[in-house]
Design a protein around this nucleic acid. Structure first.
Lengths: 336, 336
DNA sequence: CTTGACTCCCAAAACGTTTTGGAGAATCTT
DNA sequence: AAGATTCTCCAAAACGTTTTGGGAGTCAAG
């Protein structure tokens, strides 16, 4: 309720002194500092955020763009990541604000609005595309940002990503080592970097093994997309005996397709993301996950360092992928 | 890049006139208005948000508190809701900011920080408890807010909620009509209003039918919680033949428990929330859902009306629950 | 007694906008 | 032609903070 002026008046001090006392400057005597702090505590004084932001020329805000396209936002633990990121940003005095993309506007428009209105100090971009116009815009404006997922931008920029190429290559080689020869891939939309990356990993492994790369079907990165893509592969004259799916959600959709088809339960399957749900499917879903603890904290740290001006090259994290073996990848190599 | 002063100078006008032209006041001639708008467009002028907020004494921000406790945030489509809400708030010039709750701080502390620092115009509270200290605090401060879920607060406050009582009562009566007599309930943590409400609905139906209400087990509102609670009920001397689960995630956990037990596939089960995943479980999960389109838009609308000063009584939405029949609720009433 | 260093405090400017309360010119009324 | 009215525009005052550039005192050294 109180502002600095009232607080200063009640203490018989100047606004300046009160402000500096609260900020802990050596400039004001210990006694006064204590007196000011007590009074501030008592009336529950908090500096007015807008005024401070105006004066400091910092928005104290970081925006994350959320595609409003429902369901396409990302894996369920995305929200945990956001929450963790927000928590660590808050410790540095920054708040995380949601920048939704209304129908009819592009993600670029939104970035522009936030950046040009000086509404944010930095941005967090998720679900990056291989060619991402947001990245180019922010680079041209010189606004600090971090992406969740790499891009094919020529200039380096800060990111955190999992090594989907290596992960899917390894998973495919594993199937091969187990005797599989017809290994399919259920791919996500290829304009997204992560989907393309994982697809490339599968393809690389297939070529290394001298196998054809035609058992690939693309779909929306959700249960339904995986279901339809799996049906497509199962209609092929010679069915796959194993499936590497770009996401767990697609894998769960694919599991249903397998259930609906004769001998489908003989087909191995692996997903990616380690959804909690995966432990409860039938069969329990084998999957893989990005290594690293507390992703949200990492994003926050990178954002803060980007704001502090560290060069992009030092703000790139590529995490290894590890397997989470449950049951679904252990089907026989020779299917019915 | 430009501010009002520079824009005004380049046009040979006063700051006042430029500001009013952009805001569309009748006060400035159509010709000037057009000239100003064009110039503003050309340099990409956007008012500095902090300055405007300070002057207008409005934060242009709404905060939503997110418990950082991972996984306990809410159903997966919660994020879609947030995104939709943010989108509709943005249309009114408000942005949605995430107020995470760091370890060691209470949700109340966070509310206090946001409210007393004048950082927000209103708040959105999710996962309300029956006795929710945040509600009491915001009421005492007179800050507009809307909750997702009711509370037992004595003073009315704006909310959106599903009629869980009616939903679970109806689901239970339905089981009864199908011949079931041993109908169990897998409950969420009872301090949450939604969990208590659904439990009450089940219990009311059981009592109406003259059945005992001892087949109830409580767990965390996630797959694991449902799994453990189901195992507990299956250990009873006389097993339930049907299960009403507080959430779909719990139901999916329970499905796994049923798979692990002899004759478990004979047991009917129903969840709540209509997760996309439910269509892909085995068997496909029957569930229920709150009626109403575009929940996020409703929250935004209620928030805006609360900010505009409408009385709480007019800002309460209790939505009916509808069934989503798939397969899991159609097991025989007489189990093995 | 003067000088310089140090301690503690403050007045005033600045951040960029919106809004108040007119002022001057043009137009209308009578 | 004088007064009233309408049209355009603007100077200045806020909004509440942080920061700059000192200004009084006090104390020790010269």
């Amino acid at each position: 309720m109180a502002n600095l002026k009232q607080l200063a008046q009640s203490l018989g001090l100047s606004i300046t002194t009160v402000s500096r006392a609260l900020d802990g400057y050596a400039d004001v005597s210990a006694a006064t500092r204590e007196r000011v702090r007590e009074a501030a505590d008592k009336v529950g004084y908090r500096p007015n955020a807008s005024a401070r932001r105006l004066r400091r020329q910092r928005a104290e805000l970081v925006a994350v763009t959320l595609p409003s396209d429902p369901g396409h936002i990302g894996p369920p633990h995305f929200l945990d990541m956001l929450s963790g990121c927000a928590e660590h940003l808050a410790a540095a005095g920054l708040n995380l604000v949601i920048a939704p993309v209304p129908r009819g506007e592009s993600e670029l428009d939104i970035c522009r609005r936030f950046v040009d209105g000086r509404r944010v100090d930095a941005m967090l971009l998720v679900r990056t595309k291989r060619k991402d116009e947001r990245v180019e815009f922010l680079q041209s404006r010189g606004i600090p940002f971090v992406t969740n997922g790499r891009t094919e931008s020529l200039l380096p920029h800060p990111y955190i990503d999992g090594d989907g190429f290596a992960g899917f290559r390894a998973a495919t080689l594993r199937f091969h080592a187990a005797g599989h020869r017809r290994i399919g891939h259920i791919a996500g939309p290829q304009e997204y970097y992560f989907a393309h990356d994982r697809c490339r990993g599968w393809r690389a492994a297939m070529e290394e093994c001298g196998l054809a790369t035609d058992l690939c079907a693309e779909g929306a990165p959700l249960e339904q997309g995986g279901y339809l893509a799996a049906l497509e592969l199962l209609r092929q004259p010679s069915r796959p005996t194993a499936l590497a799916c770009a996401t767990d959600e697609m894998a769960i959709g694919a599991l249903r397709a397998l259930r609906e088809v004769d001998g489908g339960n003989q087909i191995s399957i692996v997903g990616h993301d380690d959804l909690a749900m995966g432990a409860f499917t039938s069969p329990p879903l084998s999957t893989m996950r990005m290594t690293g603890e507390n992703l949200g904290a990492s994003f926050a740290s990178l954002l803060l360092r980007a704001i502090a001006g560290e060069p992009a090259e030092e703000l790139q994290e590529l995490h290894a992928i590890e397997f989470v073996d449950r049951d679904s990848h252990r089907r026989p190599a020779k299917a019915a």
